[in-house]
């Protein structure tokens, strides 16, 4: 029952997306706006992960959508539109990162490393706290971490995308994890102190 209902829904949604794409291809602003409204929250989530702050994420979001609307004719329809858009946003974020390379420190910021990270720390953290931690990673680490851990790219693909060697990608990922552990431990410490006082 629910399966057939789902299929009916799917059948209804499919032409809508196609119509939106068609509308965007014809330069219909209303269709562009609808597509934006339907996908903006997901895409902004991606941008936030790759950006170092909220404003940077908004920049990437804008640039990403400009690319989507300019190059929507290149979408062949052989996969979901969201997947194609995700790739565009990731590439936009990487390009943005390359342009602003020098603005972000590449060395590890100092974090205490005295307390081991435990599983319950993670469970106590909210999504936005985790996001903030990822955003605080140095740009290079953040890119590799996002690509590998969250978006499922292989080290070979990452090396191709970022123009680095596979070895560098692996070492950057290891450093990103290590940095995250330190930052999580730091957060854990802060929370403990906050509770105590």
């Amino acid at each position: 029952m629910s399966r057939s209902g789902g299929m009916r829904l799917e059948a209804k949604r499919q032409p809508l997306e196609a119509e939106l794409i068609q509308g965007c291809l014809q330069g219909d602003r209303q269709c562009c706006k609808l597509l934006y409204e339907q996908t903006a929250s997901v895409m902004f989530g991606i941008c936030l992960r790759y950006a170092s702050d909220f404003h940077e994420a908004e920049d990437i979001l804008q640039e990403g959508y400009i690319k989507v609307f300019r190059y929507i004719s290149q979408y062949r329809g052989d996969g979901p539109l969201e997947g194609w858009m995700r790739r565009i946003f990731i590439n936009t974020a990487l390009a943005y990162g390359r342009r602003h390379k020098c603005e972000s420190p590449t060395e590890d910021p100092p974090y205490p490393d005295d307390e081991p990270l435990t599983a319950d720390v993670l469970s106590r953290l909210e999504t936005f706290e985790l996001l903030e931690l990822v955003q605080n990673l140095p740009r290079g680490y953040r890119m590799v971490f996002n690509l590998y851990v969250i978006d499922g790219y292989s080290h070979k693909e990452i090396a191709g995308l970022l123009g680095i060697s596979e070895g560098t990608s692996k070492s950057q990922l290891a450093r990103a994890r290590s940095q995250l552990r330190k930052m999580l431990a730091n957060t854990q410490q802060k929370k403990t102190y906050a509770k105590a006082f």
Binding site: L48, T127, L130, L131, I150, D151
Partner: peptide, 15 residues
């Protein structure tokens, strides 16, 4: 650690 972060951040939606 990866799994946990993935679970939280992969489907992150922010308006």
């Amino acid at each position: 650690l990866d799994q946990h972060l993935r679970a939280h951040l992969q489907a992150l939606r922010v308006q």
